[in-house]
């Protein structure tokens, strides 16, 4: 039935264990054509396992995985020639130059030389790597290495690409440049499945799956996800946020409270209010500098879902 599905990637009730460790526990989602789909979650959530199963490097225990409508397990050759895959630790040839790395991957995928030349120029324009053409890959900065790895993968122009934590350990400026490239690719119709542990990258995706402990906690557009957190949230600022946090813990407060920068985010159901919060703080003699309502972020939602899943 699902074989007729035309979405580039379909995953239905996927399960995978490594011995006693249940890495993926019944995950289902589809990636639609031309969208950026982000799997967001900490290390060990199961993101890499899912990616490796989709690109046919790992076999699922059970469940259905379709790539362009074909079952991955039965069409390994088809998947490998049509997918673009950037693994977590990309094996660039450190002793080869930028240019030599691109040529190598072009040859590997049997891209004709004149087409290679044209793509190389396009990729230089995208990645701004042109001026560094003759630099050895090993001498590039972390952000530039990631851009080169992406470029190498794009030499055979796959229209579906999977990137496993491409911005890991990359500074915020290089990360934002990298995402600009992904946006441009998506605008040209490339379908992108990307994983990250950075919550702040979620809003750059069209749709997001929040992963924890082998499960998908939530799946939607970033703005729809934030609406799931539909209760008042306050930031209580104090000069010693960790003491405010500990005081709430000692007071056995039943709501949600989490450290956030110079304060603590506090919520307690839909009818929680500023007055109730002030009462709570004063009754427990908890010092604070200011209280203000704040818009919840994805991290607030993740913390809530994570604890619900764990209990």
């Amino acid at each position: 039935m699902a074989e007729s599905n035309t979405n580039p990637i379909l995953i239905n009730n996927l399960q995978k264990s490594y011995g006693a460790v249940r890495a993926v526990r019944g995950v289902s989602f589809e990636v639609q054509e031309g969208e950026i789909f982000g799997l967001i979650g900490p290390d060990g959530a199961g993101k890499t396992t899912i990616i490796r199963i989709v690109v046919s490097l790992l076999a699922a225990d059970s469940g259905e995985v379709l790539f362009k409508g074909r079952s991955v397990g039965e069409h390994i050759q088809f998947v490998r020639t049509n997918v673009g895959y950037m693994p977590q630790r990309f094996s660039l040839y450190q002793d080869l130059t930028v240019r030599e790395n691109l040529d190598f991957f072009g040859d590997l995928f049997k891209v004709p030389l004149d087409v290679q030349r044209q793509r190389r120029e396009e990729l230089y324009a995208f990645s701004k790597l042109g001026p560094f053409e003759n630099r050895r890959a090993g001498q590039l900065s972390g952000g530039m290495k990631q851009k080169l790895a992406l470029s190498c993968m794009l030499m055979h122009e796959p229209d579906v690409i999977l990137l496993d934590e491409p911005t890991y350990g990359v500074d915020p400026v290089s990360r934002s440049e990298f995402w600009d490239i992904l946006k441009k690719l998506a605008e040209r119709g490339t379908t992108i499945l990307v994983t990250t542990a950075y919550m702040d990258e979620a809003h750059l995706c069209d749709r997001v799956g929040l992963m924890f402990d082998g499960q998908l906690l939530a799946l939607d557009t970033p703005s729809a996800l934030l609406k799931q957190f539909d209760k008042p949230l306050f930031l209580v600022e104090s000069s010693r946020p960790h003491e405010t946090y500990t005081a709430l813990k000692n007071a056995d407060f039943k709501g949600e409270y989490n450290l956030f920068g110079n304060g603590v985010h506090i919520s307690a159901g839909k009818d929680f209010s500023r007055n109730k919060l002030i009462k709570l703080l004063e009754e427990n003699r908890i010092e604070y500098k200011s209280i203000r309502p704040v818009q919840p972020g994805l991290e607030d939602l993740f913390l809530e879902l994570q604890r619900t899943a764990a209990s």
Partner: peptide, 9 residues
């Protein structure tokens, strides 16, 4: 790096 939001806190 890579640690879940709760453990990070």
């Amino acid at each position: 790096s890579g640690v879940d939001p709760d453990s990070r806190r």
